[in-house]
Amino acid sequence: MTSLKLFLGFFLQFIFLLSVVNAQGLTVGFYSQTCPQAEAIVKNVTAQVMSVAPSLGAPLMRMHFHDCFVRGCDGSVLLNSSTNQAEKDAAPNLSLRGFQVIDRVKSALENACPGVVSCADILALVARDVVVALDGPSWEVETGRRDGSVSNITEALTNLLPPGSNITQLISGFQQKGLSVKDLVVLSGGHTVGTSHCSAFTNRLYNFTGNGDTDPSLDPNYIARLKIKCPQGDQNTLVEMDPGSFRTFDEDYFTLVNKRRGLFQSDAALLNNNETRAYVISQLSNSSSTFFTDFGVSMVNMGRVGVLTGTAGEIRKVCALVN
């Protein structure tokens, strides 16, 4: 048993180191010679979309998260399947929107620089640009990812952390991707924008332990308001994750969490760990908040997870299809 544990320990270290080595193939300005206008094209198309459909900002940011947590940041979330067995067909991904935006960006890039810019890099760049469009921070995006050719519904179900996750599950899930506890709490701050279907949190309102009760970690006054928006049995109504500023990227998320008004159990869970709770409290004052800077750092960290670089993978001509 001891030998087995040692082997597994060395194996996991090897996988993590391999991921780090792969990530070294990423660099800021990767396309400066092969497609110098690449980032400008992505920014321009994204800005056009956001000017008429700002509600797509949060789903497009989430798309990058959901891509990186399954098989790494390889664009696999974009692939179609004739049998509905791809990542995008998994329940956690059914609420993703904006695939047509990625296609539009890819088409513009293919017209300018055929076969050069990967779909995985497009996801990373669009995620940054929609955050900026929502008045959030900017950061230097490392590029050089190549696209994978496998997209599996089961892997999405296994790797995407559900909104009902507790703090132990969240920390473990992030650590398995080589991400820190700080990355967890910072990236959770992405819930400052966007909406959620009632189905993602309705158990907290009506049947938390199976006895028709409510979640004691959720503010009772907030429960009353949510019950008005989400009557029992309502699965489809959309609720703002950051009421009043769900289209503005700001620090308000941490104030909501501290007031026990985080919409998901995974939000409330951030108060159940000393490190994550301390970070939440440290962001309550806008004047001393480090969230904008930290978010850029953690997005770069996440963008390095399981990447394909060099000669691995391919550069897809169409993001939904393997070449």
Rank of each mutant, 00 (worst) to 15 (best):
residue 1 M to W: 10
residue 2 T to I: 10
residue 7 F to T: 13
residue 9 G to M: 07
residue 10 F to D: 13
residue 15 I to M: 14
residue 16 F to V: 14
residue 18 L to E: 11
residue 18 L to F: 12
residue 18 L to C: 12
residue 20 V to H: 10
residue 23 A to H: 06
residue 24 Q to H: 12
residue 26 L to I: 05
residue 31 Y to L: 02
residue 31 Y to G: 00
residue 32 S to K: 12
residue 33 Q to T: 11
residue 34 T to P: 06
residue 34 T to N: 07
residue 44 N to W: 03
residue 49 V to E: 08
residue 50 M to A: 10
residue 54 P to W: 08
residue 54 P to S: 04
residue 54 P to R: 02
residue 57 G to H: 01
residue 60 L to H: 09
residue 62 R to H: 04
residue 66 H to M: 12
residue 67 D to A: 06
residue 69 F to H: 12
residue 71 R to H: 11
residue 73 C to K: 01
residue 75 G to M: 01
residue 80 N to P: 08
residue 90 A to H: 03
residue 91 A to F: 11
residue 103 D to G: 15
residue 105 V to A: 11
residue 109 L to D: 03
residue 113 C to W: 04
residue 113 C to Y: 00
residue 117 V to N: 11
residue 118 S to N: 00
residue 119 C to S: 15
residue 121 D to E: 04
residue 125 L to N: 06
residue 125 L to G: 00
residue 126 V to L: 05
residue 134 L to R: 01
residue 137 P to W: 05
residue 140 E to W: 00
residue 144 G to C: 04
residue 155 E to F: 14
residue 157 L to M: 13
residue 160 L to D: 10
residue 167 I to W: 06
residue 167 I to S: 11
residue 175 Q to I: 02
residue 176 Q to F: 05
residue 178 G to T: 05
residue 183 D to E: 06
residue 185 V to I: 09
residue 189 G to M: 08
residue 192 T to G: 15
residue 195 T to I: 06
residue 197 H to Q: 09
residue 198 C to P: 11
residue 200 A to G: 10
residue 214 T to A: 15
residue 214 T to I: 04
residue 215 D to P: 10
residue 220 P to K: 07
residue 221 N to R: 04
residue 222 Y to P: 13
residue 224 A to P: 02
residue 225 R to G: 15
residue 230 C to S: 06
residue 233 G to I: 08
residue 234 D to G: 13
residue 237 T to A: 13
residue 246 F to R: 10
residue 252 D to P: 06
residue 253 Y to E: 02
residue 254 F to H: 10
residue 259 K to Y: 12
residue 265 Q to S: 15
residue 265 Q to C: 11
residue 267 D to E: 07
residue 270 L to F: 12
residue 274 N to Q: 12
residue 279 Y to F: 13
residue 290 T to C: 00
residue 292 F to N: 13
residue 293 T to S: 13
residue 294 D to Y: 09
residue 296 G to T: 02
residue 300 V to H: 05
residue 307 V to I: 01
residue 313 G to P: 07
residue 316 R to A: 09
residue 317 K to F: 08
residue 318 V to F: 13
residue 321 L to Q: 14
